[in-house]
Each structure stands twice: as structure tokens, then as C-alpha cells.
Design a protein around this nucleic acid. Structure first.
Lengths: 129, 129
DNA sequence: ACTCTATTGATAACGAATCTCATTACGGTT
DNA sequence: AACCGTAATGAGATTCGTTATCAATAGAGT
């Protein structure tokens, strides 16, 4: 059966304190810097589990997986700052419907979709001039 | 200045014959199997160049980059079969507008977006029963 | 033909992610 | 509270996609 360990809880909590997406490696470093003795493999496993259970969202960027805590149970997408990583959850029923429609129009079944918007947040836009 | 080599042309052509997204490695294998002496690093470089020039689209899946020839100059997204890789280019002005609007609503500038739909194509749906 | 230099390619190096396996510790039982 | 089966951990090795290195090659303008 599934067990509750302080390691999983530490990962869940560390993820919750971040504003944007984080890599497993940087989360591991942060935990270590905070005095934890958690292992890297465990962080990878915990993040993968959280993603499966719907407590975290993940995306691939530049060849690595990034994770972020999300509000469980809701399907949503992200608006992500390219510069600072600030992330906003966005919902878009119109896009969901569009995806389903496009899929069925072409005979595709069991549609999934990846929809993420990247940009510069207000703060980073100001700094970039 | 930029030079035209048979290697780049070989990659461009090999990419054009494929129906769906391919990895650099598998494209390299295919070229080698076809008698070419092209090197792996060159295939990686050629694909990266094609992507920058807008002649190829790329996406990240399971930790690797996949490429596909695309109709240059047009912005479009993809409907991709999870099973066989068959890919259909789709256009969706509504989604473009939605992305821009969501970005500006939250103060984000210079919006980009990643929009891909995955599913099972008609053929693979039939086989999966 | 000559020269300059972008490109190539074999291989080494890198890095993210996974695997191995002995050790640890959760949690249900007694 | 001691016991036990086994899921989970973690250090290190391993895998695998990708990039860097650098001597050799070959475009393309003169």
C-alpha cells in the first residue's frame, strides 16, 4: 500500500511555496540548502507521483521536466513568464471544446492537449523596457 | 556566409518524406540505412537550423525533441496520433486571438504559445477497438 | 587553381532522468 | 510497545539524448 513519508510531504510543501515551474534538480537543491537530507531520486519520484495524482502540473522545457503545484481536480492551462517563471493558472472552456472538435473532425479519438502561453509578465516587461 | 551542403539537403528531404514527427536519431538511422554517410551531429545541427528557419516544427516528447517538415511562413499547430505519429497541421485563428487576449489580460507581453492536440487517428482508433 | 572559412563527423563530454539494491522506516498486527 | 512484511529511500552507477571539441573537409567567391 501507499505510505506517507516525510520526504513526500517535504516535496509537496516545497513545491507549494514556489510561484512558478521548477525542475526536480533545483527543488532538490533548495531542500538540501534548507537542511533536508532528501535524495535526488526521491524528489524525482515524488514529483512524478504528484503529477500522476493531479496535484502537480508538468511541462517540458529545454529538455527537462518542470513541475508546479496546482489546484487539484480542475483542468487548466498556464500563462508563464519566460523570464522569471511566474505562472498563472488559466481556464478556457472554449479551447477545450475547440480541441475536441478539431480532433473529431479529423477522425481522432481520445483527445488530449497541451496548451501553454508564454510571455513576459508585467514586471519583467517593465524591466525589459 | 551560409553554405549549401548535400547533408543539409539530405536531412531536409528525409524529413519531407515522413508523415509525422521524427527524432534526430531515427532520422539519422534512416539516412544511414539509405546508404548515406551523414554524421549524427550534422543531423542534429541541420534539424535545429530548419526549425529556426521555420521549415520544420519541433516538439518535446518524453525527453526528446521531435521534428517535422512544415509549410513555411504559416503559423499553425498540430493534431498528432499518439500511436503512429500521423500528424495533421491545423490552423486556429480563434486560439491565436485567445492566447493574445489571455496574455494581455494578465499584463503579459510578447506572447508565444504551445498548442498541440494528441489523440488516436481514425486508423489507430479502429485497431485499438 | 587558390584561399578563406563554414561545415562536417568521430568521439568525448555533459546532463537529465532512471535503475540498482542494500538499508530504512511506515503502518497494520499481535 | 515490540514485531514484521514490504513500500520507500538514497548513493551511486547507468542510460540515453544532446552538445562540445577539433582536426579534416569542402563550399564559394576571387
Amino acid at each position: 500500500m501507499k505510505r506517507n513519508t516525510w520526504q513526500r510531504e517535504a516535496v509537496r510543501e516545497a513545491l507549494g511555496t514556489r510561484e512558478g515551474f521548477v525542475s526536480a534538480q533545483s527543488l532538490h537543491s533548495a531542500l538540501r540548502d534548507g537542511g533536508s537530507s532528501i535524495g535526488l531520486a526521491t524528489v524525482y519520484r515524488a514529483l512524478a507521483d504528484l503529477a500522476v495524482e493531479g496535484e502537480a502540473d508538468s511541462l517540458q522545457q529545454e529538455g527537462e521536466s518542470l513541475y508546479r503545484a496546482c489546484t487539484p481536480g480542475t483542468h487548466h492551462h498556464h500563462l508563464i513568464c519566460r523570464n522569471c517563471g511566474l505562472t498563472v493558472e488559466i481556464e478556457a472552456d472554449a479551447v477545450e471544446q475547440w480541441a475536441r472538435q478539431v480532433a473529431s473532425e479529423h477522425g481522432f479519438t481520445q483527445p488530449n492537449h497541451v496548451v501553454d502561453v508564454f510571455g513576459l509578465c508585467a514586471e519583467c516587461s517593465a524591466l525589459a523596457g
